[in-house]
């Protein structure tokens, strides 16, 4: 009766994957905008790179959370810790909800990145200020990571 383990592993898979989906969409939005800008002016490539890369961090955070879950379950070693049903559900719930915040914040951060990229296209001297805008969205992804970490600490298997 390892249904708890099933839920926990499902949670880990969900958080890793869905955060990645959100990041992929965010980065793709930014990349498309950057492609458009660079057809007019390939010189701006260097300034675009951080703006394109910023929405990618949420996928990384999701991966980290998934890895924390895996570590908690000792899944990569010989002796897997089997959680009971409730613990499994706890882990599943944490992972599911945090994957929401990571993925949605990544998509919206991508949109802010697009706006920043257009700003850099018109005013390349303001690249520094443009870089600051998406970072404000990042704080919520970070809070999500911190929340997941603390909640996972509380689940005692």
């Amino acid at each position: 009766m390892e249904i708890g383990l099933a839920f926990a592993v499902a949670g880990a898979a969900i958080v890793m994957a869905i955060s990645g989906v959100g990041s992929a969409i965010g980065v793709a939005l930014a990349g498309q905008a950057a492609g458009g800008v660079m057809t007019e002016d390939p010189e701006k490539f260097g300034r675009m790179i951080p703006l394109i890369g910023i929405p990618g961090t949420q996928g990384f955070y999701g991966f980290l959370i998934g890895f924390l879950v895996l570590n908690k379950l000792n899944l990569l070693t010989a002796q897997i810790k089997i959680p009971n049903l409730y613990q499994g559900l706890q882990i599943f719930a944490i992972c599911l909800v945090v994957s929401l915040v990571e993925s949605i914040s990544a998509v919206w951060q991508g949109k802010v990145s697009v706006a920043s990229i257009y700003m850099v296209a018109k005013r390349p001297e303001e690249a520094g200020k443009a870089l600051v805008l998406p970072i404000f969205v990042e704080i919520y992804a970070i809070l999500g990571l911190a929340a997941a970490f603390l909640l996972l600490l509380g689940v005692k298997i």
Partner: peptide
């Protein structure tokens, strides 16, 4: 949050 996350 930022400090914790770096450690994590």
């Amino acid at each position: 949050a930022l400090g914790l996350v770096t450690g994590v």
